[in-house]
């Protein structure tokens, strides 16, 4: 099995977002909102940090 960095990060973000939503919220609507928000935050922060580090790789 082989996954690239982005695919691994997506898997991590989905699983952790859903698990954290179930750990911290009790209502279904709250869980859905929390999971979506956390997932998007994971993606946004990861892409932002990636672009911030981009000049250092050249």
């Amino acid at each position: 099995m082989n996954l690239n960095h982005f695919q691994t990060m997506l898997l991590f973000a989905v699983v952790i977002s859903v698990a954290f939503a179930f750990l911290t919220k009790r209502k279904l609507s709250e869980r859905a909102r929390y999971a979506l928000w956390t997932f998007l935050a994971f993606l946004l922060v990861a892409v932002a940090i990636g672009w911030l580090m981009y000049p250092l790789s050249r």
Binding site: M1, N2, T8, L11, V15, V18, A19, F22
Partner: peptide, 22 residues
């Protein structure tokens, strides 16, 4: 029940993928 299933799937998915990636 729901939480049990979600936690098993979450931990299992990460663990099995981690092993599959060697």
């Amino acid at each position: 029940w729901t939480r049990a299933l979600v936690y098993f799937l979450a931990v299992g998915t990460l663990a099995v993928t981690g092993l599959a990636l060697r």
